[in-house]
Amino acid sequence: MTRPWRPAQRSACTVLRALAAATLVLAPGLPVQAADGPPAPAPLSHYFSAATDDPAAPDHDGFIRRWMLLDPIAKPNPTNIVFTGSYVREALSPETYPGRFGTLPRPGAITHIGETLTWHALDSRLWDVKLFNFAQSRGKRTYGVVFWAVTVIDSPREVTDVRLAVGSNSASRWWLNGEVAAELFDDRRMVMDDVLSDRLTLRKGRNVIHGAIINGPGLSDFCLRLLDASGQPIRDVEVVVR
């Protein structure tokens, strides 16, 4: 969540830090608090594991957890209130994709956009994909960024009247097989099934999903699942990133 009035946010953060510093007992698995400063960021393994060569399945609720994620691209924005549809369509377009849009990046592939950025094949440990924590654990910038995410849905059959159901923080755009499927604008919080696409057809075989998420200050994440014609999650597909 982003609040445009940043001094108040800083003030609240200062209070929270002070409270955290007074806490001596931490839950297992959380990063160890430094004696004289804020806790170290959680490691990447706290939120993600490396994707394997074996196909993954959507989780019980149909959320897609396996993604190729690119390190964040710098896109400075001091606030999220600028994320109108016009702005987001221009900022997140196939022309701004780092590479040839529609192709699947190779894990470990490197691109240069002001700095060296790497594609990572990851499985989220959670139903949503924690982009802020991904960037933070990589030592990358977390505010004023654009994230790109790519995955492949391998369907055993053609499925009509499918909808992409997306939530993102903040704005984002999503493509299925190269066609725009869902767009989320404005200063936005991530909630499941926030924006649903029109009815689409999932091809038999490989279907490529591209997503781009833009955020100013604050946390950033997304969730995505496929719903069938009756609104139920589609789970009998394989998710691969290779």
């Binding site: 926030d194 924006v195 649903l196």
Partner: peptide, 10 residues
């Protein structure tokens, strides 16, 4: 309302 922010005919 097929989603929090989306509408359709169903």
């Amino acid at each position: 309302a097929i989603g929090t922010s989306s509408v359709s005919l169903v």
